[in-house]
Amino acid sequence: MTPFPFPDLTPQLIYHLAGAALVGIALYRGATSSDLLTRILALNVLSVGIAAVFVAAANRGAGAVPDPVPHAFVLTGIVVLVAVTAALLALAERIDLTGAKSDD
């Protein structure tokens, strides 16, 4: 029905691949950036990439009910990540403040 040249391309696979690409992008920037904030952002993008793998794997194709357990994993992961991000940002701000003043 679809005119698209790859007949077995499903939304599930597309987001799976997008997740893989996000992991690559995030790790690349993590290895090439020295800015604290960029590295924190990279870790957030990395976790979204992982979530994409989870959610895409949970999907059983159109019409089928998806597996709820990976959804719960991703929910937990999101909350955990916001907590760690807050801690990272607090540390980064503190380093930036003390760094501007003195080097003990």
């Binding site: 799976h16 992991v23 993590g30 870790l43 990395l46 976790s47 990439g49 992982i50 793998v53 989870f54 895409a56 794997a57 990976p70 994993f73 992961g77 760690v84 990272l88």
Partner: peptide
């Protein structure tokens, strides 16, 4: 965190 996320990525693939 990077280590945890690599672990989590492994877990995701294991689930997949």
């Amino acid at each position: 965190l990077a280590g945890s996320l690599l672990l989590l990525l492994g877990v995701a693939l294991a689930y997949a």
